[in-house]
Protein backbone atom coordinates (compact mmCIF):
# COMPACT_ATOMS: atom_id res chain seq x y z
CA UNK A 1 0.00 0.00 0.00
CA UNK A 2 2.85 2.34 0.80
CA UNK A 3 4.21 1.95 -2.70
CA UNK A 4 0.85 2.80 -4.19
CA UNK A 5 0.57 6.01 -2.19
CA UNK A 6 4.07 7.08 -3.19
CA UNK A 7 3.09 6.43 -6.78
CA UNK A 8 0.03 8.63 -6.40
CA UNK A 9 1.99 11.43 -4.81
CA UNK A 10 4.41 11.24 -7.65
CA UNK A 11 1.65 11.46 -10.21
CA UNK A 12 0.05 14.34 -8.36
CA UNK A 13 3.18 16.41 -8.52
CA UNK A 14 4.52 15.40 -11.92
CA UNK A 15 3.55 17.59 -14.87
CA UNK A 16 0.80 16.34 -17.12
CA UNK A 17 2.09 16.29 -20.65
CA UNK A 18 -1.24 16.22 -22.43
CA UNK A 19 -2.03 13.89 -25.24
CA UNK A 20 -0.54 13.61 -28.71
CA UNK A 21 -2.70 15.44 -31.26
CA UNK A 22 -2.16 12.72 -33.85
CA UNK A 23 -2.59 9.42 -32.03
CA UNK A 24 -4.43 10.79 -28.99
CA UNK A 25 -2.39 8.77 -26.52
CA UNK A 26 -1.12 10.33 -23.33
CA UNK A 27 2.43 11.44 -23.66
CA UNK A 28 4.42 9.68 -21.00
CA UNK A 29 7.81 11.18 -21.63
CA UNK A 30 8.40 14.89 -22.01
CA UNK A 31 8.87 16.68 -25.31
CA UNK A 32 10.60 14.41 -27.84
CA UNK A 33 13.81 15.76 -29.36
CA UNK A 34 13.35 17.55 -32.68
CA UNK A 35 15.48 15.78 -35.30
CA UNK A 36 15.64 18.76 -37.67
CA UNK A 37 16.63 22.37 -37.07
CA UNK A 38 13.61 24.66 -36.85
CA UNK A 39 14.18 28.07 -35.36
CA UNK A 40 10.75 29.53 -34.87
CA UNK A 41 9.56 29.02 -31.32
CA UNK A 42 5.88 28.59 -32.17
CA UNK A 43 6.66 25.90 -34.72
CA UNK A 44 8.94 24.11 -32.30
CA UNK A 45 6.26 24.24 -29.65
CA UNK A 46 3.63 22.83 -31.99
CA UNK A 47 5.92 19.95 -32.90
CA UNK A 48 6.79 19.25 -29.30
CA UNK A 49 3.15 18.39 -28.65
CA UNK A 50 3.69 15.14 -30.54
CA UNK A 51 4.51 11.93 -28.72
CA UNK A 52 7.85 10.27 -29.30
CA UNK A 53 6.47 7.59 -31.60
CA UNK A 54 4.70 10.05 -33.88
CA UNK A 55 7.71 12.35 -33.95
CA UNK A 56 9.97 9.51 -35.02
CA UNK A 57 7.51 8.50 -37.73
CA UNK A 58 7.94 11.78 -39.64
CA UNK A 59 10.05 11.17 -42.79
CA UNK A 60 11.76 14.56 -42.94
CA UNK A 61 13.45 15.62 -46.17
CA UNK A 62 16.77 16.75 -44.86
CA UNK A 63 18.67 17.16 -48.11
CA UNK A 64 16.98 17.96 -51.38
CA UNK A 65 18.67 15.97 -54.16
CA UNK A 66 16.75 17.69 -56.95
CA UNK A 67 17.46 21.38 -56.75
CA UNK A 68 14.27 22.20 -58.63
CA UNK A 69 11.50 20.27 -56.95
CA UNK A 70 13.22 19.47 -53.66
CA UNK A 71 12.84 15.74 -54.01
CA UNK A 72 15.19 13.78 -51.77
CA UNK A 73 16.30 11.48 -54.59
CA UNK A 74 17.02 11.76 -58.31
CA UNK A 75 14.09 13.21 -60.17
CA UNK A 76 13.04 12.53 -63.75
CA UNK A 77 10.03 14.82 -63.76
CA UNK A 78 12.07 17.98 -63.58
CA UNK A 79 14.26 16.88 -66.53
CA UNK A 80 11.23 16.09 -68.64
CA UNK A 81 9.43 19.35 -67.97
CA UNK A 82 9.77 21.73 -70.92
CA UNK A 83 8.45 24.95 -69.46
CA UNK A 84 8.82 25.79 -65.82
CA UNK A 85 7.19 28.87 -64.39
CA UNK A 86 8.38 28.58 -60.81
CA UNK A 87 11.93 29.01 -59.57
CA UNK A 88 12.06 26.00 -57.26
CA UNK A 89 10.02 24.03 -54.78
CA UNK A 90 10.89 22.73 -51.34
CA UNK A 91 8.98 20.12 -49.38
CA UNK A 92 9.02 19.22 -45.69
CA UNK A 93 8.45 15.46 -45.75
CA UNK A 94 8.22 12.47 -48.02
CA UNK A 95 4.66 11.42 -48.71
CA UNK A 96 4.66 7.93 -47.22
CA UNK A 97 1.83 5.86 -45.75
CA UNK A 98 2.04 7.53 -42.34
CA UNK A 99 1.98 11.01 -43.82
CA UNK A 100 -0.93 10.00 -46.04
CA UNK A 101 -2.85 8.99 -42.92
CA UNK A 102 -2.04 12.24 -41.19
CA UNK A 103 -3.14 14.32 -44.13
CA UNK A 104 -6.31 12.26 -44.52
CA UNK A 105 -7.07 12.80 -40.83
CA UNK A 106 -6.75 16.52 -41.29
CA UNK A 107 -8.23 17.00 -44.74
CA UNK A 108 -11.00 14.46 -44.90
CA UNK A 109 -11.78 13.67 -41.29
CA UNK A 110 -11.47 17.34 -40.43
CA UNK A 111 -9.27 16.86 -37.39
CA UNK A 112 -8.28 20.48 -37.16
CA UNK A 113 -6.14 20.07 -34.08
CA UNK A 114 -3.49 18.70 -36.47
CA UNK A 115 -3.25 22.04 -38.21
CA UNK A 116 -0.52 23.60 -36.07
CA UNK A 117 1.56 20.43 -36.33
CA UNK A 118 1.34 20.27 -40.12
CA UNK A 119 2.10 23.96 -40.43
CA UNK A 120 5.05 23.56 -38.11
CA UNK A 121 6.42 20.81 -40.31
CA UNK A 122 6.23 23.25 -43.19
CA UNK A 123 8.40 25.62 -41.20
CA UNK A 124 11.50 23.54 -41.98
CA UNK A 125 11.56 24.19 -45.75
CA UNK A 126 10.16 27.68 -45.18
CA UNK A 127 13.12 28.66 -43.02
CA UNK A 128 15.59 27.19 -45.45
CA UNK A 129 13.96 29.00 -48.35
CA UNK A 130 13.72 32.28 -46.48
CA UNK A 131 17.40 32.15 -45.65
CA UNK A 132 18.13 32.28 -49.40
CA UNK A 133 15.48 34.61 -50.75
CA UNK A 134 13.57 37.56 -49.36
CA UNK A 135 9.91 36.84 -49.78
CA UNK A 136 7.51 39.60 -50.62
CA UNK A 137 4.31 37.67 -50.01
CA UNK A 138 2.82 34.26 -49.28
CA UNK A 139 -0.02 32.84 -51.37
CA UNK A 140 -1.85 29.53 -51.33
CA UNK A 141 -3.28 27.21 -53.95
CA UNK A 142 -7.04 27.77 -53.80
CA UNK A 143 -9.81 25.22 -53.52
CA UNK A 144 -12.95 25.07 -55.64
CA UNK A 145 -15.91 26.73 -53.94
CA UNK A 146 -17.91 23.58 -53.75
CA UNK A 147 -15.08 21.62 -52.18
CA UNK A 148 -14.39 24.48 -49.78
CA UNK A 149 -17.98 24.52 -48.59
CA UNK A 150 -17.96 20.79 -48.15
CA UNK A 151 -14.68 20.69 -46.23
CA UNK A 152 -15.06 23.94 -44.39
CA UNK A 153 -11.44 24.98 -44.83
CA UNK A 154 -8.65 25.15 -47.38
CA UNK A 155 -5.69 23.25 -45.95
CA UNK A 156 -3.11 25.08 -48.09
CA UNK A 157 -4.51 28.46 -47.09
CA UNK A 158 -4.52 27.55 -43.42
CA UNK A 159 -0.89 26.47 -43.56
CA UNK A 160 0.08 29.53 -45.58
CA UNK A 161 -1.60 31.83 -43.07
CA UNK A 162 0.37 30.33 -40.25
CA UNK A 163 3.64 30.56 -42.13
CA UNK A 164 2.83 34.15 -43.04
CA UNK A 165 2.15 35.02 -39.44
CA UNK A 166 5.21 33.28 -38.05
CA UNK A 167 7.67 34.82 -40.49
CA UNK A 168 5.95 38.19 -40.81
CA UNK A 169 5.29 38.02 -44.50
CA UNK A 170 2.02 39.39 -45.84
CA UNK A 171 -0.47 36.83 -47.05
CA UNK A 172 -2.05 37.67 -50.41
CA UNK A 173 -4.94 35.71 -51.90
CA UNK A 174 -3.59 35.93 -55.45
CA UNK A 175 -5.50 33.07 -57.04
CA UNK A 176 -8.96 31.69 -57.40
CA UNK A 177 -10.18 28.45 -58.83
CA UNK A 178 -12.37 28.86 -61.89
CA UNK A 179 -12.91 25.27 -62.81
CA UNK A 180 -13.75 22.40 -60.56
CA UNK A 181 -11.33 19.60 -61.38
CA UNK A 182 -11.73 16.01 -60.38
CA UNK A 183 -9.67 14.77 -57.51
CA UNK A 184 -6.00 14.67 -58.48
CA UNK A 185 -5.23 11.62 -56.42
CA UNK A 186 -6.87 9.22 -58.89
CA UNK A 187 -4.93 10.35 -61.92
CA UNK A 188 -1.76 9.47 -63.79
CA UNK A 189 0.92 11.95 -64.76
CA UNK A 190 -0.33 12.89 -68.21
CA UNK A 191 -3.90 13.35 -67.00
CA UNK A 192 -2.81 15.56 -64.17
CA UNK A 193 -1.02 17.92 -66.49
CA UNK A 194 -3.98 18.13 -68.84
CA UNK A 195 -6.44 18.41 -66.03
CA UNK A 196 -4.86 21.54 -64.60
CA UNK A 197 -4.94 23.71 -67.73
CA UNK A 198 -7.02 26.78 -67.14
CA UNK A 199 -8.42 25.87 -63.77
CA UNK A 200 -6.94 28.88 -61.99
CA UNK A 201 -7.21 32.60 -62.51
CA UNK A 202 -5.76 35.67 -60.85
CA UNK A 203 -8.00 36.79 -58.04
CA UNK A 204 -8.04 40.43 -58.96
CA UNK A 205 -5.48 43.18 -59.27
CA UNK A 206 -3.11 43.64 -56.35
CA UNK A 207 -1.78 47.19 -56.43
CA UNK A 208 1.34 46.29 -54.51
CA UNK A 209 2.57 44.02 -57.27
CA UNK A 210 1.90 46.29 -60.19
CA UNK A 211 5.03 48.41 -60.01
CA UNK A 212 7.12 46.05 -62.13
CA UNK A 213 9.78 45.39 -59.51
CA UNK A 214 11.08 41.89 -59.07
CA UNK A 215 9.19 40.20 -56.24
CA UNK A 216 9.58 36.79 -54.68
CA UNK A 217 6.33 35.06 -53.87
CA UNK A 218 5.99 31.89 -51.86
CA UNK A 219 3.20 29.62 -52.99
CA UNK A 220 1.97 27.03 -50.48
CA UNK A 221 0.29 23.71 -51.23
CA UNK A 222 -0.05 20.41 -49.38
CA UNK A 223 1.28 17.83 -51.84
CA UNK A 224 3.63 17.93 -54.82
CA UNK A 225 3.30 14.94 -57.13
CA UNK A 226 4.17 16.03 -60.65
CA UNK A 227 4.29 19.74 -60.01
CA UNK A 228 1.46 20.45 -62.43
CA UNK A 229 -0.61 22.39 -59.92
CA UNK A 230 2.25 24.56 -58.76
CA UNK A 231 3.39 25.11 -62.34
CA UNK A 232 -0.07 26.15 -63.48
CA UNK A 233 -0.52 28.46 -60.50
CA UNK A 234 2.90 30.00 -61.10
CA UNK A 235 2.01 30.51 -64.74
CA UNK A 236 -1.22 32.31 -63.84
CA UNK A 237 0.49 34.57 -61.31
CA UNK A 238 3.33 35.43 -63.66
CA UNK A 239 0.92 36.22 -66.43
CA UNK A 240 -0.77 38.78 -64.21
CA UNK A 241 2.45 40.08 -62.65
CA UNK A 242 5.34 39.19 -65.01
CA UNK A 243 8.02 40.54 -62.70
CA UNK A 244 7.25 38.00 -59.96
CA UNK A 245 9.30 34.96 -59.11
CA UNK A 246 7.45 32.01 -57.64
CA UNK A 247 8.86 29.65 -55.02
CA UNK A 248 6.82 26.60 -54.09
CA UNK A 249 6.52 25.50 -50.49
CA UNK A 250 5.03 22.04 -50.11
CA UNK A 251 4.14 20.01 -47.10
CA UNK A 252 4.90 16.66 -48.74
CA UNK A 253 6.74 15.44 -51.83
CA UNK A 254 5.50 12.13 -53.18
Amino acid sequence: MKGEWLERMYRWFSPHNGSCPVCGRDRRDGAPPLPVPIRHAAARQALSSLCGDCMRAIPWIDIAACSICGRPDRCGDCLRRSVRHFQCCRAAVRYDAVMRDWLALYKYRGLERLEPVLAAMLALPAERLLSRVTAFAVAAVPLADERLRERGFNQAERMALRIARWYRIPYLPLLRRVRHTDKQSFKGRGDRLENMRGSFAAAGPVALLDDGKERNIILVDDIYTTGSTINECAYVIRKAYPSCKIYGLLWARS
Binding site: G110, E112, R113, L148, R149, E150, R151, G152, F153
Partner: peptide, 16 residues
Protein backbone atom coordinates in the same frame (compact mmCIF):
# COMPACT_ATOMS: atom_id res chain seq x y z
CA UNK B 1 -15.32 21.39 -28.68
CA UNK B 2 -12.87 23.08 -30.96
CA UNK B 3 -13.78 26.29 -32.68
CA UNK B 4 -12.36 27.31 -35.99
CA UNK B 5 -13.15 29.41 -38.99
CA UNK B 6 -15.55 27.61 -41.27
CA UNK B 7 -15.95 28.18 -44.96
CA UNK B 8 -19.30 26.46 -45.17
CA UNK B 9 -21.11 28.83 -42.80
CA UNK B 10 -18.85 31.86 -42.92
CA UNK B 11 -18.48 31.98 -39.16
CA UNK B 12 -15.03 32.48 -37.74
CA UNK B 13 -15.63 30.33 -34.69
CA UNK B 14 -17.72 27.40 -35.72
CA UNK B 15 -17.56 24.63 -33.11
CA UNK B 16 -16.63 21.05 -33.99
Amino acid sequence: MRRSACASCGSDSCAV
